[in-house]
Nucleic acid binder design. Structure first.
Lengths: 110, 110
DNA sequence: ATCGTTTATCGTAGATTAACGATTGGAGGG
DNA sequence: CCCTCCAATCGTTAATCTACGATAAACGAT
């Protein structure tokens, strides 16, 4: 059981609530959501480890069907965290550093 | 999220053959998912701004119904990012700094 | 032109989320 | 005891996610 604090208003801050219509909340949520799946985290890490772009090797490195991986890549691409360049029949994905930086900055400044 | 509490409940030992290929990927995804909604981002920020805990003021600061905010609070609590202490008829929420640190560390080390 | 490879998209099924109103339960005050 | 206030939970609906197989599209090579 929580002990009873009899101290008046010790727990809650009663100063007026003023929360700016945070546009960055949307951005942060968007970026966080892109990382909100283990497979996508692993994809991002894979692309960071080998700094060059990788193509269908991503599929081989994950226990998921090719179409599923493609979905995750699409989500990451839409978030701006990665980008894909067509190279013949293959597609090479790589990190989009500025966008990743933005995620890092938004999280770090929490 | 694939990572749910779908624990076997079996009597037999179901030793996980697949040891987490990347346990931190699960953790990061879990924490990122907790922040993957603008309302939850704003709640976390609100709790950080006034370092003390806030109760139902959170509801007033968001354009959402009380029950919806309660759901988001539950999600944040389950992620470990915040905690709630009952104080009389009210509940005061506050940040759980170690867990937030973990999120920051995992993102920063990407 | 056709084949094989690589990747994206379609269609689907099941699970999960987000939102709300309504209800319940607990704590305190009268 | 009754009543009010606060927060959590229930029950529902609509939307979205995740996963897969199957199919289509693009490309290089034969």
């Amino acid at each position: 059981m929580a002990a009873k604090r009899k101290l008046p208003e010790m727990c809650c801050d009663v100063s007026p609530v003023k929360l700016p219509p945070d546009e960055t909340a949307e951005t942060l949520a968007e970026l966080a959501w892109a990382m909100a799946h283990p497979a996508r985290v692993r994809i991002v890490r894979l692309l960071l480890n080998r700094k060059a772009c990788v193509c269908g090797e991503i599929v081989d490195s994950l226990p998921l069907a090719q179409s599923t991986v493609s979905q995750h890549l699409k989500i990451l691409k839409q978030s701006g965290l990665i980008q894909g360049d067509v190279d013949g029949p293959k597609v090479c994905y790589c990190i989009n550093p500025p966008r990743l930086q933005e995620l890092k900055r938004l999280i770090a400044s929490l």
